[in-house]
Computed example of a mutant assay.
Amino acid sequence: MSTESTNGKDPLRPGMMSNDLIQTLIDNYRKGHVRAINSTLGIEDAHSIWFDLPKLKKFIATIEDEAKNANPDTTEEDLGIRFYYAAYPKAENWDIMDSHPVAKEYAEKHTIVMVPTLKKQDETGQTLHFDFNPVDANDANSMALNARKANLSIIAENSGSLIPPGVSIVESFD
C-alpha cells in the first residue's frame, strides 16, 4: 500500500478521509457558519447530528423496497439520498412538530432532512438525481417528487440526536 493510500489522500478509496482533512472541514464550518449563526440568531446552534445504524439501514431499505414496488426496473445504482440542511422552528411555532415528535430543546437548531433521489434523464437528456417519493401513487410513472404538493407525506428521515443540546464529549473532532 502506498503512503498516499494510508494518509487518506487516495481519491479512489471511497469512505476514507484523513483526520486532518476532517478536522479542517469541521473547523471551517464551526469557525465560520456556526459562529455567524450563533451571533446572528443569539443561540448555540448544533454542529453535529447522530443517527443510529439500524435507523439508517431501515431508511435505505424502505427507499429500495418502495422504489422497487413502484417500478421493478429500478436498480440500486438509480437510487441515492439527498441531505438537505434544515433548521427546526422557533419554540413558539413548535406545534408544526406535532406529527414528528422532537424535543423542544432543538428549537432553531440546525438539522438535516434526508430525501430519496432517483437517477433519470431530464427533458434535455441529461442524467440527473431527482428527489422522489416512491409511495406517491400519483408519481408512480415519473417517480419525480413534486415538492410543492401541500401536506404530502413522503419517505424522509430527520430524527437524529443533535450536539448541542447533546454533550460533545462523544465527538472526536472538536
Rank of each mutant, 00 (worst) to 15 (best):
L21M: 13
V115L: 06
D20R: 11
A91T: 09
A144G: 05
I96Y: 04
A86W: 15
G32C: 00
T111V: 02
E66D: 08
V113L: 12
M114P: 06
S161E: 15
D45F: 05
G8R: 03
E4C: 08
L53H: 01
Q121R: 15
I26C: 08
E105F: 01
K31I: 07
I37R: 10
N28Q: 12
E4Q: 12
Q121P: 00
A103D: 15
P134L: 01
A140V: 10
K120Y: 02
P164N: 01
A103P: 07
P89M: 03
H100C: 08
G80W: 05
N141E: 14
Y88G: 03
Q121D: 09
A67H: 01
R35H: 10
D174W: 02
T3R: 11
D73S: 13
N158W: 13
R148G: 10
A144I: 14
D78V: 00
R35G: 02
S168W: 08
R148S: 14
D20F: 07
S99F: 09
M17S: 12
K31P: 00
A156N: 15
F132Y: 14
K120H: 07
G80A: 06
K31C: 03
I96V: 15
S161V: 13
A137Q: 13
A67E: 01
P101I: 06
N38R: 03
S48L: 04
A61D: 15
F51W: 06
T117H: 01
P54I: 05
H110E: 09
